[in-house]
């Protein structure tokens, strides 16, 4: 999992900004079978969380109906300077964390 995140570097306090995220992941549905008929185990990113200075901003419970390489865009009302921490967790227990500092102009 390698996340790519688009966060504005400098904003005004109280401003609402869009945060765009993309992470590469197969999002294996668990519905597919190999050629010899064996089920391929599900492996999807089931949880995404975003916190700003420890406070929850946005959370997503994802299922197999989310496309491979999940894209997620949400908003943040920037209360002041701080750090946005985003976390992706998959079925295999792999966790990716991305941090972005937001400064006030």
């Amino acid at each position: 999992m390698k996340p790519r995140v688009r966060v504005p570097g400098s904003v005004k306090a109280g401003e609402i900004v869009e945060i765009r995220t993309l992470v590469n992941h197969v999002m294996e549905t668990g519905q597919r079978r190999t050629l010899d008929g064996r089920a391929i185990a599900r492996n999807i990113i089931h949880t995404f969380t975003a916190t700003f200075d420890g406070k929850e901003v946005f959370k997503a419970d994802l299922n197999s109906g989310i496309s491979a390489n999940p894209y997620l865009a949400f908003h943040l009302k920037v209360p002041g300077p701080g750090q946005l921490v985003m976390t992706w967790t998959d079925d295999a227990g792999v966790i990716a964390v991305e941090k972005a500092d937001i400064a006030i102009a």
């Binding site: 946005f58 994802l62 496309s67 908003h75």
Partner: peptide, 16 residues
């Protein structure tokens, strides 16, 4: 999917 917002979200918009 289920998306969860907070007042910190500012706007209840989600794209995927």
């Amino acid at each position: 999917a289920a998306f969860h917002f907070t007042p910190l979200s500012g706007r209840a918009i989600v794209s995927s």
